[in-house]
């Protein structure tokens, strides 16, 4: 589905288009919010707030240059506000300060190809990446965002994104056992 086709329809108050738009992004944004907040209920509220504001001000949506950056940044800012609400005495929260270990269960679709232990080892590496590194990795590799988009959303330089991706992939590659399971 091409988002750029949905935007003009949403601007024209097309509810069906808005619904498609919502379903396209809500889970991704929820997961992103949850990496920051670690409370699914709050992450849901953040997503709801963001989409509520978009619908309320839908006539402005046409002016948005990059919808990915716009949505994720809105979620990021709203989530950080929730963090601040939780602890008003804390100094302004930033992405780098968030430490959020997440459990990841890995399932292999083809057990002959790569062993379960190997996949689990890979997942463990991803989960044990430093928070900022893991967040960058997930935005780029899982959500398919461009370096520039990830950099804008997390307010980092594009070079930092590149370096952190390199670090993540180097660690992952050390867990891949070539020749043993993967027949290339």
């Amino acid at each position: 589905m091409d988002v750029s086709l949905l935007i003009p329809r949403i601007v024209n108050s097309d509810e069906q288009a808005f619904r498609q738009f919502f379903h396209l992004y809500s889970d991704r944004l929820f997961r992103f919010a949850n990496t920051i907040l670690q409370v699914p209920q709050e992450a849901e509220e953040v997503v709801s707030d963001v989409f509520f504001n978009i619908w309320q001000r839908r006539e402005n949506l046409g002016a948005v240059k990059n919808i990915n950056t716009y949505l994720y940044s809105a979620v990021r800012n709203t989530a950080l506000n929730y963090l601040k609400k939780r602890n008003p005495l804390a100094s302004a929260a930033t992405i780098e300060e968030i430490d959020t270990p997440q459990e990841l269960t890995v399932i292999s679709p083809d057990k002959q190809l790569i062993s379960k232990e190997n996949l689990e080892a890979i997942a463990r590496v991803i989960n044990n990446l430093p928070p900022a590194c893991r967040m960058i990795f997930k935005l780029v590799k899982e959500d398919g965002l461009k370096y520039q988009e990830a950099a804008d959303i997390l307010q980092l330089s594009i070079n930092t994104v590149n370096v952190q991706m390199g670090i993540a992939l180097k660690k992952i590659s050390q867990q891949i056992k070539i020749g043993q399971y993967i027949d290339l």
Partner: peptide, 14 residues
Amino acid sequence: FLGLIVAGSLYFFQ
């Protein structure tokens, strides 16, 4: 969500 497994998957296709 508490009961939900945060399932992630890595797919390797041949």
